[in-house]
Simulated scan of single mutants.
Amino acid sequence: MSDIQIEIRQKLYPAVGQAASHAAIQDFKLTLHAGEFVCLVGPSGCGKTTLLNIVAALDQDYDGEIRVARQQAQPKIGYIFQNPRLLPWRTVRQNIELVLQGRDAGETVDFLLETMQLTRFQHVYPERLSLGMSRRVAIIRAFAIDPELLLMDEPFVSLDPPTARQVRELLLELWRKRPHTVLFVTHDLREAIALADRLIFLSPSPMSIVGDIRVPIPRDLRRDENEIEAFRRQLLDGAPHIKQLL
Rank of each mutant, 00 (worst) to 15 (best):
F37W: 04
T119I: 01
A230Q: 12
L118D: 07
I25N: 09
A239Q: 15
Q26L: 13
T49D: 08
I228H: 04
A15S: 15
R120N: 15
A194Y: 04
H180K: 15
R219N: 11
D224Q: 09
L183I: 04
L51F: 00
G45V: 07
E127C: 02
G45F: 02
K29W: 05
H241N: 11
A164N: 10
T31R: 09
M152C: 07
L113K: 03
L32F: 00
L113R: 03
P240Y: 09
F184N: 03
I4M: 06
G78I: 03
Q5C: 14
I193L: 10
D104C: 01
D188A: 07
V55H: 07
P84F: 06
T119F: 01
M133K: 06
Q10P: 09
A34M: 04
P147I: 00
N83W: 06
I54M: 07
P218N: 14
P240K: 12
L52R: 00
Q5P: 04
G47S: 13
F201V: 05
M116G: 06
L199A: 02
D27K: 10
F121N: 07
L151N: 04
D110K: 07
A73T: 08
Q101A: 01
L189V: 15
S205G: 06
L236D: 04
R135K: 15
G35A: 01
Y79D: 08
Q18K: 15
V41A: 12
E191Y: 08
R85C: 04
D153Q: 06
I4T: 02
R233W: 04
Q94M: 06
R90I: 05
L40H: 01
C46E: 13
Q117W: 07
P204N: 07
M152E: 03
R165G: 09
I66Y: 00
P126Y: 05
V38L: 06
L235C: 13
L235T: 14
F81P: 02
Y79S: 08
L86P: 04
N53F: 01
E36G: 01
T186G: 02
L245R: 14
G42I: 12
L195A: 03
R67N: 08
A24E: 11
D237Q: 14
T181Q: 03
L202G: 07
T49E: 10
Q101E: 06
L131W: 00
P155E: 09
R85F: 02
R233Y: 06
K76V: 00
R198P: 06
L149Q: 12
S21W: 08
R222Y: 14
Q82G: 13
C39G: 01
G45D: 01
S158W: 05
V55S: 05
F121W: 11
F111G: 11
E229N: 11
I54C: 03
Q101R: 10
P161N: 01
T119H: 01
Q26T: 13
M207Q: 14
P43N: 11
P155Y: 10
V182D: 02
Q74T: 08
C46P: 11
I96E: 00
R168S: 14
N226E: 09
D212S: 12
L87C: 09
V99Q: 02
A105D: 11
A144N: 08
A138E: 02
I25R: 05
F28K: 09
R223V: 05
P147D: 00
L51C: 01
A142Q: 04
Y62S: 03
P162G: 02
